[in-house]
Design a protein around this nucleic acid. Sequence first.
DNA 1: CTATATAGTTAAGCGCTCTTAACTAAAAAG
DNA 2: CTTTTTAGTTAAGAGCGCTTAACTATATAG
Lengths: 154, 154
Amino acid sequence: MTSTPQLIQTIRQFMDFAMHHSMRERAHFAKATGLSMPQFGILMQLHYRGNCAVGDISERFDITNAAASQLVDKLVQSRLIQREEDPADRRAKLLNLTEKARELIQQGIEERYRWVDQLAAKLTPEERTKVTEALQIMTQAAKELETEPATSVS
Amino acid sequence: MTSTPQLIQTIRQFMDFAMHHSMRERAHFAKATGLSMPQFGILMQLHYRGNCAVGDISERFDITNAAASQLVDKLVQSRLIQREEDPADRRAKLLNLTEKARELIQQGIEERYRWVDQLAAKLTPEERTKVTEALQIMTQAAKELETEPATSVS
DNA sequence: CTATATAGTTAAGCGCTCTTAACTAAAAAG
DNA sequence: CTTTTTAGTTAAGAGCGCTTAACTATATAG
């Protein structure tokens, strides 16, 4: 248990940089597309988690069904979401991204990761090897954490 | 230029995890304290960048002076910001966090980094060494990027 | 079949942020 | 000293997201 404080400090510092850039790019993208943050969030959920129902959105963002329905409706009117009846349960709706939305999101992702590309370009081959290995370790640990119940800190 | 695609993929993947957690904790904190996202952002700016004027806020968040003034005013009424005349330029105002705000922010930071602590706790001593070294490399690269003019990707 | 629970929509109303426009007051320029 | 620029505030009004409440329609339980 020797270098833990330094480790934590190092992770926090890098995450501050990463967060700072991601937030700014996210805000910039939302502004450029005219999407509000909640609308943007819904598109990202559909992109990463796949098609879902209105209730999944209200659950994920901790808002009422009414609010989710209204947000979805605006995205439908903007031709970014397709809303159709679920044949298996005709009360429910199936939400899909339109092609227009997919293109938009792809742009957003590329913009968001431009910083990562610039960062990677600055590293030497030796550094790249080290960083790749270390972040794979971190990602693995993150995945494990996600599947565990919440635990207390050491 | 051998392993760059894998490197970039690895960085992106980890950043996705980190962003996901940071965003959720940020939203949770804002909700718990009753602060809106813009209000929270202003407090964070004052925390990280130190005291500043109203104009600095409007510039940073790309809003008008009027909007910044109104947001600040609400934070002043909530006793989270102290607003006093700048003796060097009596048109300007000096904005400071109150003690109440500092305590609040400290809680927020701890909450936001709980994930980091859990992550660090999962690593072996050997992994800790590797991760520390790699993230120091990345942070250094990020710092260098920040001071450079915007560059195109290789 | 009837009663109840579930999925979603709609409308009214509140609070928030934001903008524009008009304003005060101080600083800088002529 | 007068003019112009700068920093900030205030007010009116638009737009958005959210909630509650009332509603429709489908599915499920008794």
